[in-house]
């Protein structure tokens, strides 16, 4: 679970949620969030929300996509 392995997983899977990442790498969700944010800050990956009509964003509905 390093930035490069996360990148490879994102490219391979397409849309990935924090939970999927945690399960795949066997790490806690906070760690997954940190790794994803690394790529989000660099502008290489975008956050997408599945249901646009939610007022409160439910974590299970948020996923990330490699650009």
């Amino acid at each position: 679970m390093t930035p490069l392995s996360v990148r490879a997983y994102l490219i391979k899977k397409g849309d990935v949620s924090i939970r999927m990442l945690s399960e795949h790498f066997q790490i806690d969700m906070v760690m997954s969030q940190l790794l994803i944010q690394f790529w989000v800050k660099k502008g290489r990956c975008v956050q997408k929300v599945l249901c646009g009509d939610c007022q409160v964003t439910c974590p299970s509905q948020v996923y990330y996509r490699w650009i």
């Binding site: 679970m1 390093t2 930035p3 490069l4 790794l35 690394f38 660099k42």
Partner: peptide, 17 residues
């Protein structure tokens, strides 16, 4: 191919793991 900041982060995360 990789920029240095990615490699630096890679080093820290890899060592931690």
């Amino acid at each position: 191919q990789e920029s240095y900041d990615v490699l630096i982060a890679e080093g820290f995360y890899h060592t931690a793991a």
